[in-house]
Design a binder for these strands. Structure first.
Lengths: 116, 116
DNA sequence: CGCATTGTTTGACAACCACCAAACAATGCG
DNA sequence: CGCATTGTTTGGTGGTTGTCAAACAATGCG
């Protein structure tokens, strides 16, 4: 049910993934996905403090980099981490990033806007 | 002998590190440092295929993000990975990136011989 | 079908980035 | 001191990015 363009596992590139993760907003999305497993785009947007079009832009960036998988169900779109694929391609990378983003204020520090 | 501005270990930020690593040229530098341990800026530049001012720009980006340490000896400047600091702050991150960059050809573009 | 909900796309704009070239700075050597 | 070596800084340029607002598209409900 892949209605949206997702890169194949073998086409996921390291620099693309790193670039996708190198943004406070997107890191926030990833960190949240790591705990909730899955959420709708709208639910994700509510926790970001940016315009919905901006959130959509970030969701696409993550999807096109191969970091998240997006599936549609009715009017909603659910996003989730492509853990299996990422682990297969870049072992340990996602885990270390998620762990790092969960500690201290590594994420909040650069992207905070007092709206969390 | 820190003549150049290096961030303190606790000031190294995840997004900054990821941002620094999310570039093919800088990833190449990091991958090379992972094998040779230390090299001069000039030696690094020779393997990049970009202008020396561009290389200098990348070296600074890596240094300011806290990824590499730069020390001066005479006319030369040696750069090396801040493995210990990065491991302390973001366990496993650097290793996973180095491993990932070593696998596929994402990084290797110009013939280089690493001892791996 | 009409309409609200959910999310995307487009346009516009400011900020940033990678790159080169040339000038500059710092260091050591003769 | 004069000069070559090593690397940085500055200026300029084209491309990318993050952001919002507004229009658009798709879906399900009454």
């Amino acid at each position: 049910m892949r209605l949206l363009p997702h890169p194949a596992t073998e086409d996921i590139e390291l620099t693309e993934v790193l670039r996708a993760l190198a943004d406070p907003i997107r890191l926030k999305i990833v960190a949240r996905l790591a705990t909730v497993g899955e959420m709708t785009c709208g639910e994700a947007t509510d926790h970001l403090g940016v315009h919905k079009s901006t959130a959509s832009h970030h969701h696409r960036a993550l999807r096109e980099a191969g970091v998240v998988y997006t599936k549609q169900e009715g009017r909603l779109k659910y996003i989730s981490l492509r853990r299996y694929d990422l682990d297969a391609r870049f072992p340990g990378l996602l885990d270390s990033v998620i762990t790092a983003s969960g500690d201290h204020r590594a994420v909040a520090a650069s992207g905070e806007r007092g709206r969390d």
